Simulated assay, not measured.
Amino acid sequence: MMTIEARLAELGIVLPQAAAPVASYQPVVVANGLAHISGQLPFVAGELVKGRLGEDVSLEQGYDAARACGLMIIAQIRAAGIALDNVARVVKLGAFINSTPDFTDQPKVANGASELMFEVFGDLGRHARSAVGVPVLPLGAAVEVDAIIALAAD
C-alpha cells in the first residue's frame, strides 16, 4: 500500500510551508482522536488569493483557492507532527466563500478542497461538508476552509 507522502509525490503535489497563525489561535488542536484544523486561507505562489466570488474572482479561481486551502490543511497536519499516514478519515470540511449575495455556486468552489482530499487520501478523504457564502473573510481572502480529521490510534 502506498504511503500518503508517496501519493503526494506521485500526484506532483508539493505542500506549502504551513502558515503561521494570523491571530490568537492554534493551527491544529488534537482532542479525543480528532485533529481540528483552524480555517486556512488560500495562498497560491506565495500570494493570498483575495476578492469576492461573483464580483472579481471567477468560479475557476475560487476552486483553485479552495484547493490551496486544502493543501494548507494537509501542510498543517504535517507541521503539527502528525504523520499523514495516521489520517484515519477526513471527517468534515467547512468552506467559507467570500461572495456576492447573488452568487450561489459555493459548493462548486468548495469542491476544490473536497476533491483534493479524495485525490490524496482516497476513500478516507470522503467527508461531510458545509459550503457557506459570507460577505467578508480575514485579510480579504476569497475562501477559507477548516477541517476535522480523525486520527488512527497509536
Rank of each mutant, 00 (worst) to 15 (best):
Q17F: 11
Q17G: 11
A18Q: 09
A20V: 08
P21V: 00
A23Y: 15
Q26C: 06
V29L: 11
V29E: 12
V29G: 08
N32Y: 15
H36Y: 15
H36A: 07
I37L: 12
S38N: 08
G39K: 02
L41P: 08
P42Q: 11
F43E: 03
V44C: 06
A45H: 15
A45Y: 15
G46T: 11
E47T: 15
L48N: 07
L48M: 08
V49C: 05
V49F: 08
R52E: 13
L53E: 00
L53F: 05
L53S: 01
L53W: 03
L53H: 04
D56W: 09
S58L: 06
S58P: 04
L59R: 11
E60H: 14
E60G: 13
Q61H: 09
G62P: 04
G62W: 05
Y63K: 10
Y63V: 02
Y63S: 00
Y63L: 04
A65N: 02
A65I: 00
A68I: 07
L71M: 11
M72I: 06
I74M: 08
A75S: 15
A75V: 06
I77E: 01
I77H: 03
A83H: 13
A83P: 11
L84T: 06
D85H: 02
N86S: 13
N86M: 05
V87G: 02
V90G: 03
V91C: 00
V91D: 12
L93M: 05
G94S: 13
F96N: 07
F96W: 12
N98L: 02
N98D: 06
S99N: 14
S99T: 11
P101T: 11
D105Q: 11
Q106W: 10
K108V: 02
V109T: 04
N111T: 07
L116C: 07
L116R: 04
F118E: 14
F118K: 13
G122T: 01
G122N: 03
D123C: 00
D123W: 05
L124P: 06
L124C: 05
R129F: 15
R129M: 14
S130E: 14
V134I: 09
P135C: 07
L137Y: 10
L137W: 09
L137S: 09
L137I: 05
L137E: 04
P138V: 04
P138Y: 12
P138F: 09
P138A: 11
L139T: 15
L139P: 14
L139E: 15
A142D: 06
V143R: 00
E144T: 07
V145S: 01
I148R: 08
I148C: 07
L151E: 02
A152T: 10
A153C: 06
D154F: 09
